[in-house]
């Protein structure tokens, strides 16, 4: 459906913007390494079904490989910046101070409690949706601490937030057309979108209506 396609395209766009940001500036200014590492973990734990070879569609499989591949590629690019631009890298690390154990621990516990089946694959899947819902927090934390962000960085976060937000009308659509109701995806998706709400508001005010991006 149109919402699902738009969401996935928005997700793709966010990654293209992120790669463009790193490529263009040749540094990692304003990008949280911790958030990016969390995304590698999110995609690797969610797409374990690739190993079972029970593929739903070519589209699905290609996208899964794309998300795993690009998330790892981002880490590689960031590590290159460490060598090329050590001062900027150190500066980023000094500001990337969110304690991710507070995201990993609860996600693991929530996955044990809320899952569709107590199997490795399902537990990892549940862990990945819980973790994804909060994975942006180190990035938002970094942004709010510095108070400023490059335009590309804000576009990246916006596109990334829009992706999960668009999944919500997709779930409503699927509920009516397929009678499908995946409660874990829906709950974590709502949580994820809620975490972006503040950011969306500031983005709308500053970026859409003109002017620079500054957080209080």
């Amino acid at each position: 459906n149109i919402f699902r396609i738009s969401a996935d395209l928005s997700h793709l766009a966010s990654i293209v913007i992120l790669l463009e940001t790193i490529r263009k500036t040749r540094q990692v200014d304003g990008i949280s390494l911790k958030t990016q590492l969390l995304y590698v973990l999110v995609f690797c734990t969610r797409y374990l079904d690739l190993l079972t070879f029970r593929w739903t569609s070519l589209y699905n499989t290609l996208m899964k490989f794309f998300f795993i591949g690009t998330s790892i590629y981002v880490i590689k690019l960031m590590q290159e910046c460490k060598i090329k631009n050590p001062v900027a890298y150190k500066d980023m690390m000094a500001r990337d101070t969110f304690q991710i154990k507070y995201l990993l621990g609860p996600s693991a516990i929530l996955a044990m409690v809320f899952n569709y089946k107590f199997t490795i694959l399902e537990l990892c899947w549940s862990f990945s949706v819980w973790l994804e819902s909060v994975a942006i927090l180190p990035q938002l934390f970094m942004l709010s601490r510095s108070g400023k962000a490059g335009t590309l960085t804000t576009h990246y976060i916006f596109a990334l937030g829009l992706y999960r937000a668009l999944y919500i009308p997709n779930w409503i659509w699927r509920y009516y057309t397929e009678n499908r109701f995946e409660k874990l995806s829906i709950f974590t998706g709502l949580l994820q979108t809620a975490l972006y709400s503040d950011f969306f508001y500031i983005y709308y005010k500053k970026v859409i209506k003109g002017g620079g991006f500054e957080l209080p």
Binding site: H11, T56, S57, N60, K64, Y116, K117, W125, N179, R180
Partner: peptide, 10 residues
């Protein structure tokens, strides 16, 4: 549905 959901979303 009562069967295990297929995770066909990304």
């Amino acid at each position: 549905s009562t069967t295990l959901l297929e995770h066909d979303e990304l």
